[in-house]
Design a protein around this nucleic acid. Structure first.
Length: 672
RNA sequence: GGGCGCGUAGCUCAAACGGAUAGAGCACCGGAUUUCUAAUCCGGUGGUUGCAGGUUCGAUUCCUGCCGCGCCUACCA
């Protein structure tokens, strides 16, 4: 509703500017006044126009107000301060529409969107950094779907890379385990934890710094090479390990209500020769050039993103430009093997339907809600299914990948551009976010010995290679245990079977909110104290507000949803006007206004790829509600009309808060 | 060296295109519960927005320089 009124206001103003001054403004800035007393919208455009029109801002503001006239849904426009135009909405009308859940039609762009997130190397347990990625990605998917978009969720699996090779080396060369023994281990409940420790041991086994163990490193190279040959024993072992770990990742994410539609794997990109198809096109278009000399002699290279070809080479008679060595990114190594950026280019051509090849598909994982997650396969696979959903070939993509990979991501985008696929490049968004690190205190708590240098840092980077980090399942377990203690203390009368799911919902609420409340490019310095907090700006705070709202209706023996739906029978527009207009009503109106903003906030989140705004919105709504709750006893209210109005307030806020939390992937327990 | 990002209260973070008195949470201090759940609410303490310039009616926001920090800059992924 808020969004709709804003648009109407800006249309009216734009229309007037065109008529009166023949001015065409690209965007009309509309913000919110510092206090609701001043109105619901503020336009500072008179300041901007003062120069152009050579008039005082206040004078211009008055002209605009007079010229625009009445706008549907608004009571009036007025000049404020040095020249702001403040708009006051018709509170009763907005409240009635919101209560009735009236949704003005919005244009939804067509075309499918592909969101890729999680993409953890399947060689060890997921840690808190991966949680941030998955929670950001999943929330963004929910945002898009909430806005009416069709979305496919993909989780890219690098099952043939060095990281998997390293764990294979650990099993075969350090532990000297047979394939059957590894198979047995892989059936153990937390096989990913086993791999976590083993992976750290392998890294040590290779040696550190200058004291690298050449022989051991050679084993790694051989193993990596063997994995690429699908028929080898090594490849079979790698496959069984990576598949088992992948399954663990899906289980971990499922605990947080995060699901995927498709898992494209590098092994298929390799075996189905996606690269060959891409390579030809890249060579033909000149995106790749062959180096005849220098340090990259014998390699196919492209220009690294962010480097410019500004050098004024005058004697460049060649039509293909020369890239200085420092600006080259090797795509095909001199031994003919392809690096991961190359595979990524091919993969992204597939995403946009530009490659002319497709995977085979088979079902891999079924969620408790019977939703199927598919995995890439090859046509000769007996489990591959002809009848599968159509993946890829989408209009827009979002890749949730941490900021460290932005150069690689941009190189892929530039390659698409170089191939002439500007449309695709324009709809390729690297959803970049910063890493989760540990505070020195947290690292010390985990038992890691820190150097003095590390102790002085504000945060320390997590390292899977060193086995340094907080595992996702451990954190979840701790959160659940901690929430369980609280629930046990508060609701001793409830059976344990009911207390555990409540604690779990609270734990997930706390975790998801924690990961979403920071803006993307802020490094999260992880600390158990903050993450395990259930008070203040947290998920449980928002959940608690809903529980309180629910309990009012429970006590009154009224069904909240029904009440909400039939609100017009209980509260007339006249009643809304009576209780919402005037100085005394400002605080409650502020709550209504916040509740009206949900779709506006969702639009903002999508446009800026920033889910943190949603967390902020949820918190603000909960905060306003808690203050309202404290100030207005409802069930004891003797004025029946006012009581109905207060109940409507609770019902609407409850409905909106539940929706907002659902978009964040947070469910609300029945009691807390 | 080059590229990207960051620097705001004791701590962790906000502040949509440049806008009205820079806001929250935590911590600390003081209050509120015979009431619809105190995982709550109210009040207080706490700021030269890293430094210096510039643009502007107006700068935490944009530009330049400097200081400090992080990441990227592999024939790793």
């Amino acid at each position: 509703m808020y969004r709709h009124l804003e648009r109407r206001l800006s249309d009216a103003v734009r229309d007037f500017l065109r008529r009166a001054y023949s001015l065409e403004l690209a965007a009309i800035v509309i913000e919110q006044p510092p206090k609701v007393e001043l109105g619901e919208y503020a336009l500072p455009l008179a300041f901007e126009l003062a120069k152009k029109l050579r008039k005082a801002p206040r004078k211009i503001a008055e002209e605009i107000i007079a010229g625009v006239g009445t706008v549907e849904g608004f009571d009036k426009l007025e000049v404020a301060g040095a020249g702001y135009i403040n708009a006051r909405v018709n509170r009763a009308a907005l409240a009635s529409a919101l209560a009735a859940d009236h949704k003005p039609p919005a244009a939804i762009p067509s075309g499918k969107i592909l969101v890729e997130h999680t993409s953890i190397n399947p060689n060890k347990a997921a840690h808190i950094g991966h949680l941030r990625n998955a929670i950001l990605g999943d929330t963004f998917v929910r945002l898009l779907r909430c806005a009416g978009r069709e979305v496919d969720v993909q989780n890219y699996i690098d099952n043939t890379g060095v990281q998997v090779a390293d764990v294979v080396v650990g099993f075969t060369h350090i532990e000297k385990k047979s394939r059957a023994e590894i198979e047995a281990l892989a059936r153990q409940p937390r096989f990913d934890y086993y791999c976590w420790d083993l992976y750290a041991r392998v890294s040590q086994w290779y040696g550190e710094g200058k004291e690298k163990n050449k022989e051991n490193l050679q084993v790694r190279a051989q193993t990596l090479h063997a994995i690429e040959d699908a028929t080898s024993e090594t490849a079979a072992i790698a496959d069984l390990i990576s598949t088992a770990v992948l399954r663990r990742h899906l289980e971990t994410m499922d605990r947080l209500d995060i699901e995927y539609d498709f898992l494209p794997r590098e092994s298929e990109i390799l075996h189905l020769h996606f690269w060959d198809a891409a390579f030809t096109k890249l060579k033909d278009s000149g995106v790749l050039t062959f180096e005849n000399e220098g340090k990259n002699k014998g390699c196919w290279v492209t220009r690294r993103a962010g480097t410019s070809s500004t050098t004024e080479v005058t004697d460049n008679t060649d039509d293909s430009e020369q890239i200085s060595e420092d600006d080259q990114k090797v795509i095909v190594r001199s031994n003919g093997t392809v690096g991961y950026v190359g595979k990524d280019i091919a993969y992204h051509m597939w995403k946009f339907g530009l490659l002319g090849r497709d995977f085979a598909y088979r079902k891999f994982y079924r969620y408790p809600n019977r939703h199927d997650c598919w995995i890439s396969s090859i046509p000769s696979d007996k489990d591959a299914e002809k009848d599968h959903p159509h993946f890829g070939d989408v209009a827009e993509i979002y890749n949730v990948i941490d900021a460290r990979q932005s150069e690689a991501q941009n190189t892929v985008i530039e390659a698409l551009r170089g191939l002439g696929h500007n449309q695709a490049a324009d709809h390729y968004t690297h959803f970049s976010y910063e890493m989760v690190a540990l505070t020195p205190r947290c690292a010390a708590e985990l038992g890691y010995a820190l150097s003095d240098e590390d102790k002085a840092r504000s945060y320390i980077e997590v390292s899977g290679r060193k086995g340094f980090g907080v595992k996702a399942d451990d954190l979840l377990d701790q959160l659940i245990a901690s929430a369980k203690q609280e629930v046990d203390a508060r609701h001793p009368q409830l059976p344990d079977a009911e207390r555990l799911p409540i604690a779990t919902q609270i734990a997930i609420g706390a975790l998801r909110f924690f990961m979403l409340k920071y803006t993307k490019n802020s490094v999260i310095a992880f600390d158990f104290k903050d993450a395990l907090s259930f008070e203040g700006e947290t998920g449980p705070y928002a959940q608690y507000a809903v529980v309180r709202a629910t309990s009012i209706f429970k006590k009154a023996a009224i069904d909240s949803e029904t009440f909400c739906r039939d609100v017009a029978d209980n509260v007339s527009p006249g009643d809304f006007a009576q209780f919402l207009i005037g100085e005394a009503a400002n605080a409650i109106w502020e709550l209504w206004l916040a509740a009206a903003k949900t779709s506006y906030i969702i639009d903002q989140c999508i446009a800026t790829t920033e889910p943190a705004y949603l967390a902020k919105h949820a918190f603000q709504l909960a905060q306003l509600f808690n203050a309202f709750y404290h100030l207005h006893p409802i069930l004891s209210e003797t004025d029946e009309k006012r009581k109905q109005f207060l109940l409507a307030t609770v019902a609407v806020v409850r409905r909106e808060l539940i929706r907002v939390l659902a978009v964040m992937g947070i469910a609300v327990p029945p009691v807390m």
